Amino acid sequence: MRQTTIRKSISCSGIGLHSGKKVHLSLRPAPEDAGVLFCVRDEDGSRFLKPAPDAVRSTRLATTLARGKDAIATVEHILAAVRGMGIDNIRIEVQGGELPIMDGSAAPFVYLLRLAGLQEQGRARRVLALKKPVEFVRDGKWIKAAPHQGFAVDYAIEFPHPLIGRQQLSFDCTPESFARNVAKARTFGFLHEVEMLRQNGLALGGSLENAVVLDEYGVLNDDGLRYKDEFVRHKVLDFVGDMAMAELPLWGRFEVFASGHALNNEFLRHITDNADEYLCEMHLSGVGVAAHDAPLRPAVAEAAIA
Protein backbone atom coordinates (compact mmCIF):
# COMPACT_ATOMS: atom_id res chain seq x y z
CA MET A 1 0.00 0.00 0.00
CA ARG A 2 1.47 3.31 -1.08
CA GLN A 3 1.15 6.80 0.37
CA THR A 4 -1.50 9.12 -1.03
CA THR A 5 -2.17 12.84 -1.36
CA ILE A 6 -4.87 14.82 -3.13
CA ARG A 7 -4.67 15.35 -6.88
CA LYS A 8 -5.37 19.12 -6.94
CA SER A 9 -5.93 22.07 -4.59
CA ILE A 10 -9.41 23.00 -3.46
CA SER A 11 -10.81 25.76 -1.21
CA CYS A 12 -13.92 26.76 0.69
CA SER A 13 -15.16 29.33 3.22
CA GLY A 14 -17.48 29.05 6.20
CA ILE A 15 -18.25 30.22 9.72
CA GLY A 16 -15.90 29.58 12.65
CA LEU A 17 -17.50 27.88 15.66
CA HIS A 18 -15.61 30.03 18.19
CA SER A 19 -15.56 33.44 16.53
CA GLY A 20 -18.76 33.33 14.49
CA LYS A 21 -16.76 35.03 11.71
CA LYS A 22 -16.03 33.94 8.16
CA VAL A 23 -12.92 31.75 7.84
CA HIS A 24 -11.20 30.30 4.80
CA LEU A 25 -9.76 26.84 4.13
CA SER A 26 -7.54 25.53 1.32
CA LEU A 27 -6.45 21.92 0.87
CA ARG A 28 -3.30 21.33 -1.18
CA PRO A 29 -1.27 18.28 -2.30
CA ALA A 30 1.86 17.48 -0.29
CA PRO A 31 4.95 15.39 -1.14
CA GLU A 32 5.73 11.90 0.14
CA ASP A 33 6.46 11.64 3.88
CA ALA A 34 5.24 15.21 4.47
CA GLY A 35 2.31 13.97 6.54
CA VAL A 36 -0.46 16.35 7.56
CA LEU A 37 0.72 19.94 7.76
CA PHE A 38 -1.36 22.96 8.82
CA CYS A 39 -0.52 26.43 7.57
CA VAL A 40 -1.67 29.57 9.39
CA ARG A 41 -2.13 32.43 6.93
CA ASP A 42 -2.68 36.07 7.95
CA GLU A 43 -1.39 39.56 7.27
CA ASP A 44 2.00 38.58 8.75
CA GLY A 45 2.52 35.75 6.27
CA SER A 46 2.40 31.97 6.64
CA ARG A 47 3.53 29.73 9.49
CA PHE A 48 3.35 25.95 9.73
CA LEU A 49 1.99 23.75 12.52
CA LYS A 50 2.49 20.00 12.62
CA PRO A 51 -0.11 17.90 14.45
CA ALA A 52 1.30 16.21 17.54
CA PRO A 53 -0.27 15.07 20.82
CA ASP A 54 1.67 17.67 22.82
CA ALA A 55 0.71 20.42 20.34
CA VAL A 56 -2.90 20.34 21.56
CA ARG A 57 -3.41 23.56 23.55
CA SER A 58 -7.12 23.26 24.33
CA THR A 59 -9.83 20.62 24.25
CA ARG A 60 -12.74 22.87 25.31
CA LEU A 61 -15.58 22.60 22.76
CA ALA A 62 -13.11 21.29 20.16
CA THR A 63 -9.45 20.42 19.66
CA THR A 64 -7.06 23.34 19.20
CA LEU A 65 -3.61 22.88 17.70
CA ALA A 66 -1.01 25.49 18.68
CA ARG A 67 2.66 26.43 18.65
CA GLY A 68 3.80 29.65 20.26
CA LYS A 69 1.38 32.44 19.36
CA ASP A 70 -0.11 30.52 16.42
CA ALA A 71 -3.23 28.42 16.95
CA ILE A 72 -5.85 26.70 14.82
CA ALA A 73 -9.09 25.62 16.49
CA THR A 74 -11.62 22.91 15.62
CA VAL A 75 -9.16 20.71 13.73
CA GLU A 76 -10.69 17.32 14.63
CA HIS A 77 -13.29 17.11 11.84
CA ILE A 78 -10.88 17.83 9.00
CA LEU A 79 -8.32 15.46 10.55
CA ALA A 80 -10.99 12.76 10.82
CA ALA A 81 -11.85 13.24 7.14
CA VAL A 82 -8.19 13.05 6.10
CA ARG A 83 -7.51 9.90 8.12
CA GLY A 84 -10.89 8.38 7.38
CA MET A 85 -10.40 8.77 3.64
CA GLY A 86 -6.90 7.28 3.79
CA ILE A 87 -4.88 10.40 2.90
CA ASP A 88 -1.28 10.42 4.15
CA ASN A 89 0.10 13.73 2.93
CA ILE A 90 -1.78 17.02 2.71
CA ARG A 91 -1.32 20.72 3.40
CA ILE A 92 -4.24 22.42 5.17
CA GLU A 93 -4.14 26.22 4.92
CA VAL A 94 -6.34 28.21 7.31
CA GLN A 95 -7.21 31.92 7.41
CA GLY A 96 -9.17 33.09 10.44
CA GLY A 97 -7.65 31.00 13.24
CA GLU A 98 -10.04 28.06 13.02
CA LEU A 99 -11.55 25.58 10.62
CA PRO A 100 -15.04 26.34 9.30
CA ILE A 101 -17.58 24.35 11.30
CA MET A 102 -19.58 23.67 8.11
CA ASP A 103 -22.62 21.55 9.10
CA GLY A 104 -20.98 20.23 12.29
CA SER A 105 -19.86 16.98 10.68
CA ALA A 106 -16.96 15.80 8.51
CA ALA A 107 -19.14 15.20 5.43
CA PRO A 108 -18.37 18.57 3.74
CA PHE A 109 -14.64 17.87 4.09
CA VAL A 110 -15.08 14.38 2.64
CA TYR A 111 -16.89 16.03 -0.28
CA LEU A 112 -14.00 18.45 -0.82
CA LEU A 113 -11.43 15.67 -0.67
CA ARG A 114 -13.38 13.63 -3.21
CA LEU A 115 -13.62 16.65 -5.53
CA ALA A 116 -9.84 17.14 -5.22
CA GLY A 117 -9.28 13.48 -6.06
CA LEU A 118 -6.81 10.98 -4.66
CA GLN A 119 -3.26 10.63 -5.99
CA GLU A 120 -1.14 7.56 -5.22
CA GLN A 121 2.51 8.31 -4.50
CA GLY A 122 5.68 6.29 -4.85
CA ARG A 123 6.63 5.36 -1.28
CA ALA A 124 5.10 2.75 1.01
CA ARG A 125 2.57 3.93 3.59
CA ARG A 126 3.90 4.27 7.13
CA VAL A 127 1.77 3.66 10.22
CA LEU A 128 2.21 3.61 13.99
CA ALA A 129 0.99 0.25 15.25
CA LEU A 130 0.18 -0.72 18.81
CA LYS A 131 2.35 -3.65 19.81
CA LYS A 132 0.80 -4.48 23.21
CA PRO A 133 -2.51 -3.87 25.01
CA VAL A 134 -2.96 -0.68 27.03
CA GLU A 135 -5.71 0.53 29.37
CA PHE A 136 -6.24 4.20 30.18
CA VAL A 137 -8.91 4.87 32.82
CA ARG A 138 -9.95 8.23 34.27
CA ASP A 139 -12.98 8.89 36.53
CA GLY A 140 -15.07 6.03 35.20
CA LYS A 141 -14.20 6.77 31.56
CA TRP A 142 -11.76 4.67 29.61
CA ILE A 143 -9.88 3.86 26.45
CA LYS A 144 -8.59 0.30 26.11
CA ALA A 145 -6.51 -0.57 23.08
CA ALA A 146 -4.88 -3.65 21.58
CA PRO A 147 -2.86 -4.52 18.46
CA HIS A 148 -4.88 -4.73 15.25
CA GLN A 149 -4.02 -4.42 11.57
CA GLY A 150 -6.16 -1.40 10.81
CA PHE A 151 -8.11 1.12 12.87
CA ALA A 152 -11.20 -0.21 14.64
CA VAL A 153 -13.32 1.28 17.41
CA ASP A 154 -15.94 -0.10 19.80
CA TYR A 155 -17.41 3.06 21.32
CA ALA A 156 -20.12 3.47 23.98
CA ILE A 157 -21.70 6.60 25.47
CA GLU A 158 -24.29 7.08 28.19
CA PHE A 159 -26.28 10.27 28.81
CA PRO A 160 -29.29 10.72 31.15
CA HIS A 161 -31.43 12.02 28.30
CA PRO A 162 -34.51 10.25 26.88
CA LEU A 163 -33.25 10.55 23.30
CA ILE A 164 -29.73 9.30 23.99
CA GLY A 165 -29.42 6.93 26.94
CA ARG A 166 -26.76 4.32 26.17
CA GLN A 167 -25.56 4.04 22.58
CA GLN A 168 -22.83 1.81 21.16
CA LEU A 169 -21.14 1.54 17.79
CA SER A 170 -18.55 -0.89 16.41
CA PHE A 171 -16.63 0.66 13.54
CA ASP A 172 -13.79 -0.63 11.32
CA CYS A 173 -12.35 2.37 9.50
CA THR A 174 -12.08 2.28 5.72
CA PRO A 175 -12.78 5.17 3.34
CA GLU A 176 -16.11 3.59 2.42
CA SER A 177 -17.25 2.89 5.98
CA PHE A 178 -16.10 6.29 7.22
CA ALA A 179 -18.01 8.17 4.51
CA ARG A 180 -21.12 6.03 4.91
CA ASN A 181 -21.39 5.50 8.66
CA VAL A 182 -19.52 8.27 10.49
CA ALA A 183 -18.73 11.35 8.38
CA LYS A 184 -22.29 12.77 8.35
CA ALA A 185 -22.80 12.61 12.13
CA ARG A 186 -23.00 16.15 13.57
CA THR A 187 -21.66 17.60 16.78
CA PHE A 188 -24.27 17.93 19.52
CA GLY A 189 -24.93 19.87 22.69
CA PHE A 190 -27.59 20.68 25.26
CA LEU A 191 -29.56 23.91 25.24
CA HIS A 192 -28.55 24.94 28.76
CA GLU A 193 -24.87 24.46 27.86
CA VAL A 194 -25.23 26.48 24.67
CA GLU A 195 -26.83 29.35 26.57
CA MET A 196 -24.02 29.33 29.14
CA LEU A 197 -21.34 29.30 26.44
CA ARG A 198 -22.94 32.24 24.65
CA GLN A 199 -23.08 34.22 27.90
CA ASN A 200 -19.33 33.68 28.22
CA GLY A 201 -18.58 34.74 24.65
CA LEU A 202 -17.98 31.20 23.41
CA ALA A 203 -19.41 29.17 20.51
CA LEU A 204 -20.51 32.38 18.79
CA GLY A 205 -20.76 30.56 15.46
CA GLY A 206 -22.83 27.68 16.79
CA SER A 207 -26.38 27.29 15.49
CA LEU A 208 -28.97 24.71 14.52
CA GLU A 209 -27.33 24.80 11.08
CA ASN A 210 -24.13 23.22 12.41
CA ALA A 211 -25.05 21.29 15.55
CA VAL A 212 -27.72 19.04 16.99
CA VAL A 213 -29.16 20.85 20.02
CA LEU A 214 -31.26 19.08 22.65
CA ASP A 215 -33.57 20.46 25.31
CA GLU A 216 -34.80 18.29 28.21
CA TYR A 217 -37.00 16.13 26.00
CA GLY A 218 -35.85 16.07 22.40
CA VAL A 219 -34.05 17.67 19.46
CA LEU A 220 -34.66 21.31 18.55
CA ASN A 221 -33.50 20.93 14.93
CA ASP A 222 -36.42 20.95 12.50
CA ASP A 223 -34.83 18.23 10.37
CA GLY A 224 -34.30 15.90 13.34
CA LEU A 225 -31.48 13.36 13.42
CA ARG A 226 -29.54 11.91 10.50
CA TYR A 227 -29.18 8.59 12.37
CA LYS A 228 -31.04 7.32 15.42
CA ASP A 229 -27.61 6.91 17.06
CA GLU A 230 -26.06 10.04 15.58
CA PHE A 231 -24.61 10.96 18.99
CA VAL A 232 -22.29 7.97 19.33
CA ARG A 233 -21.41 8.17 15.64
CA HIS A 234 -20.18 11.72 16.15
CA LYS A 235 -18.14 10.61 19.17
CA VAL A 236 -16.45 8.04 16.92
CA LEU A 237 -15.80 10.79 14.34
CA ASP A 238 -14.16 12.94 17.04
CA PHE A 239 -12.08 9.97 18.21
CA VAL A 240 -10.77 9.34 14.69
CA GLY A 241 -9.84 13.02 14.43
CA ASP A 242 -8.20 13.20 17.83
CA MET A 243 -6.12 10.06 17.15
CA ALA A 244 -5.00 11.74 13.91
CA MET A 245 -2.90 14.09 16.05
CA ALA A 246 -0.33 11.26 16.02
CA GLU A 247 2.58 11.71 13.63
CA LEU A 248 1.42 8.81 11.44
CA PRO A 249 -1.87 6.93 10.98
CA LEU A 250 -2.50 4.85 14.09
CA TRP A 251 -3.26 1.12 13.97
CA GLY A 252 -5.11 -0.61 16.79
CA ARG A 253 -8.46 -1.76 18.11
CA PHE A 254 -9.91 0.70 20.62
CA GLU A 255 -12.63 0.08 23.19
CA VAL A 256 -13.88 3.46 24.38
CA PHE A 257 -16.41 4.49 27.00
CA ALA A 258 -17.59 8.08 27.59
CA SER A 259 -14.39 9.70 26.33
CA GLY A 260 -14.05 13.21 24.94
CA HIS A 261 -11.37 15.45 23.44
CA ALA A 262 -9.47 15.82 26.72
CA LEU A 263 -9.27 12.11 27.53
CA ASN A 264 -8.53 11.26 23.90
CA ASN A 265 -5.52 13.57 23.99
CA GLU A 266 -4.33 12.29 27.38
CA PHE A 267 -4.44 8.74 26.03
CA LEU A 268 -2.55 9.65 22.86
CA ARG A 269 0.10 11.50 24.87
CA HIS A 270 0.48 8.47 27.12
CA ILE A 271 1.17 5.99 24.33
CA THR A 272 3.40 8.35 22.33
CA ASP A 273 5.38 9.47 25.40
CA ASN A 274 5.96 5.76 26.02
CA ALA A 275 6.36 4.84 22.36
CA ASP A 276 9.18 2.34 22.98
CA GLU A 277 6.76 0.31 25.09
CA TYR A 278 3.55 0.64 23.08
CA LEU A 279 4.25 1.57 19.45
CA CYS A 280 6.22 0.50 16.43
CA GLU A 281 6.47 2.06 12.99
CA MET A 282 5.48 -0.17 10.09
CA HIS A 283 5.94 0.26 6.36
CA LEU A 284 3.10 -1.27 4.37
CA SER A 285 3.90 -2.90 1.05
CA GLY A 286 2.79 -5.76 -1.17
CA VAL A 287 -0.60 -6.97 -2.30
CA GLY A 288 -0.96 -10.15 -0.25
CA VAL A 289 -3.61 -10.71 2.39
CA ALA A 290 -2.69 -10.68 6.08
CA ALA A 291 -5.04 -11.92 8.79
CA HIS A 292 -6.64 -8.98 10.60
CA ASP A 293 -5.65 -10.26 14.02
CA ALA A 294 -2.14 -11.45 13.11
CA PRO A 295 0.65 -10.31 15.47
CA LEU A 296 2.23 -7.00 14.52
CA ARG A 297 5.87 -7.14 13.53
CA PRO A 298 8.78 -4.85 14.50
CA ALA A 299 9.25 -1.35 13.12
CA VAL A 300 11.64 -2.46 10.38
CA ALA A 301 9.25 -5.11 9.05
CA GLU A 302 7.19 -4.89 5.88
CA ALA A 303 3.48 -5.69 6.28
CA ALA A 304 1.60 -7.25 3.39
CA ILE A 305 -2.04 -6.23 3.49
CA ALA A 306 -5.09 -6.45 1.29
Score class of each variant (00 low, 15 high):
residue 154 D to T: 08
residue 173 C to I: 00
residue 12 C to D: 04
residue 200 N to K: 12
residue 162 P to F: 14
residue 91 R to I: 14
residue 54 D to P: 06
residue 301 A to T: 02
residue 270 H to L: 06
residue 217 Y to D: 15
residue 58 S to D: 15
residue 171 F to G: 07
residue 74 T to Q: 03
residue 105 S to E: 01
residue 272 T to K: 02
residue 271 I to K: 02
residue 288 G to F: 00
residue 179 A to W: 13
residue 182 V to Y: 08
residue 53 P to M: 11
residue 254 F to R: 01
residue 165 G to C: 07
residue 23 V to G: 13
residue 16 G to K: 01
residue 138 R to M: 11
residue 304 A to M: 15
residue 81 A to F: 00
residue 167 Q to K: 05
residue 285 S to H: 09
residue 156 A to M: 10
residue 219 V to E: 12
residue 50 K to H: 10
residue 265 N to T: 01
residue 106 A to M: 00
residue 220 L to T: 06
residue 231 F to E: 11
residue 199 Q to D: 13
residue 255 E to I: 02
residue 178 F to E: 12
residue 296 L to G: 11
residue 54 D to W: 12
residue 219 V to G: 10
residue 279 L to F: 07
residue 83 R to L: 15
residue 252 G to K: 01
residue 245 M to I: 00
residue 254 F to A: 03
residue 262 A to S: 14
residue 289 V to A: 14
residue 266 E to V: 04
residue 104 G to D: 01
residue 177 S to K: 08
residue 200 N to S: 13
residue 74 T to F: 03
residue 234 H to C: 09
residue 247 E to H: 09
residue 290 A to Y: 01
residue 146 A to N: 01
residue 167 Q to F: 04
residue 165 G to R: 06
residue 121 Q to I: 08
residue 191 L to W: 12
residue 198 R to M: 12
residue 247 E to N: 10
residue 281 E to D: 00
residue 50 K to G: 03
residue 119 Q to G: 09
residue 35 G to F: 07
residue 59 T to W: 01
residue 29 P to L: 06
residue 226 R to L: 13
residue 37 L to V: 09
residue 5 T to S: 07
residue 187 T to K: 03
residue 283 H to W: 12
residue 237 L to P: 07
residue 70 D to H: 11
residue 224 G to W: 11
residue 151 F to K: 08
residue 114 R to G: 07
residue 72 I to N: 04
residue 120 E to A: 10
residue 7 R to N: 05
residue 177 S to L: 05
residue 275 A to Q: 06
residue 198 R to Q: 10
residue 20 G to T: 02
residue 5 T to W: 06
residue 120 E to Y: 13
residue 227 Y to N: 10
residue 125 R to V: 12
residue 31 P to V: 00
residue 164 I to V: 15
residue 102 M to G: 01
residue 54 D to S: 14
residue 282 M to S: 13
residue 144 K to I: 09
residue 274 N to T: 12
residue 222 D to V: 15
residue 30 A to P: 03
residue 95 Q to V: 15
residue 248 L to R: 05
residue 187 T to L: 04
residue 43 E to L: 11
residue 5 T to Q: 07
residue 102 M to Y: 01
residue 46 S to H: 12
residue 43 E to F: 10
residue 186 R to T: 02
residue 216 E to Q: 14
residue 26 S to M: 08
residue 229 D to Q: 10
residue 115 L to E: 13
residue 54 D to E: 15
residue 117 G to T: 00
residue 186 R to M: 11
residue 275 A to H: 05
residue 60 R to M: 14
residue 200 N to F: 10
residue 284 L to Q: 03
residue 129 A to N: 02
residue 27 L to Q: 01
residue 55 A to N: 06
residue 158 E to I: 05
residue 153 V to F: 05
residue 44 D to T: 14
residue 16 G to W: 05
residue 177 S to C: 14
residue 198 R to T: 13
residue 94 V to G: 08
residue 92 I to N: 05
residue 247 E to V: 11
residue 193 E to F: 02
residue 114 R to D: 11
residue 146 A to C: 04
residue 91 R to C: 11
residue 37 L to G: 03
residue 299 A to E: 07
residue 284 L to G: 02
residue 304 A to T: 14
residue 63 T to D: 15
residue 62 A to E: 07
residue 305 I to H: 07
residue 281 E to W: 00
residue 41 R to G: 14
residue 73 A to T: 05
residue 20 G to E: 03
residue 191 L to H: 09
residue 24 H to S: 13
residue 102 M to S: 02
residue 155 Y to I: 04
residue 65 L to A: 07
residue 48 F to G: 09
residue 60 R to G: 07
residue 153 V to D: 09
